[in-house]
């Protein structure tokens, strides 16, 4: 495999990049279960930092899970029918609409949050409610759901399938439930996992939209990085890794599967 010096150099760069990404994550895992990180691992291993994180931040963890599930529900209700409508009318207007709802991928979350705050920040009941953050998360994740479903629907011959069902007397709503949704399932699954993963990790919008009573997991992380000792910050990061890494792997698996089915 390593016949030439060029190959060796490539391997070294690859390994160096891996080390750069992996070493601090391992440090954080280690620091989260070490009695005293400054003294090193010889001070002993403990789960007490994790326990302390649970006492301090379990509310933020539950709020993030609740937000992610609510975000999933909203993006399903808004996104799946819309993707179907876009797939049925593949014209210029559809392209423009798709571009427009994709703007939150291009515009930094900070700018979007400022826009939301300036328009709705004075609506007290809404501003302090967790649904204010939900709106931000839906804005950010909706394009992923729509595109994921749309790409699967665009790859199948939707028109012929629907005409067949229509000739047998199926109503439009019936065709949506019995034909469109089952065919779009791989895309819906990939989109759903993406939405949940992104919602749980969202910080840029959430930091601006949150209130002291609506702190999410990443907001709590920022809080712990600024004001807690390194062991607690690390233990909290470890809890986050345990939640996000399986989700990321499931998301990558589902996306690859959806791509395979489309081919």
């Amino acid at each position: 495999m390593l016949k030439s010096p060029a190959k060796l150099l490539q391997l070294l760069v690859t390994l160096a990049a891996c080390a750069f990404l992996l070493v601090p994550t391992l440090q954080s895992v280690l620091a989260g279960v070490t009695v005293n990180y400054f003294q090193g691992i010889s001070s002993g291993l403990t789960l007490s930092w994790i326990g302390e994180v649970w006492e301090l931040y379990s509310d933020s963890i539950f709020l993030s899970i609740r937000l992610a599930l609510a975000c999933l529900a909203v993006t399903l209700v808004l996104g799946v029918p819309a993707a179907y409508a876009l797939a049925r009318n593949p014209g210029r207007a559809s392209r423009i609409l798709e571009e427009f709802i994709s703007l939150p991928l291009a515009i930094p979350g900070l700018a979007l949050a400022l826009a939301l705050l300036q328009l709705y920040g004075s609506v007290r009941g809404f501003r302090v409610n967790w649904t204010f953050i939900l709106v931000g998360h839906v804005l950010y994740t909706l394009p992923f759901m729509v595109r994921s479903v749309l790409s699967v629907l665009a790859a199948i011959d939707l028109k012929t399938l629907e005409e067949g069902a229509a000739s047998l007397g199926a109503s439009p709503a019936r065709r949506f439930v019995d034909i469109v949704v089952p065919n779009a399932l791989p895309g819906i699954l990939a989109g759903a996992l993406t939405v949940v993963t992104l919602s749980i990790g969202e910080f840029n919008l959430t930091w601006m939209l949150h209130t002291p009573l609506t702190k999410t997991l990443p907001v709590g992380l920022a809080d712990s990085y600024a004001s807690m000792r390194l062991e607690i910050a690390s233990a909290y990061t470890l809890v986050f890794f345990v939640m996000i890494v399986p989700l990321l792997m499931a998301m990558q698996w589902a996306s690859a599967r959806a791509q395979r089915i489309m081919q």
């Binding site: 990404l21 992380l221 990085y225 792997m249």
Partner: peptide, 24 residues
Amino acid sequence: ILLSILTLPLAFPGVVVGFMIILL
């Protein structure tokens, strides 16, 4: 495994990335 390591940070929020640099 190398590929998994190299794509792992895709799901990290910016604050966590910042903390990784603090650890380094």
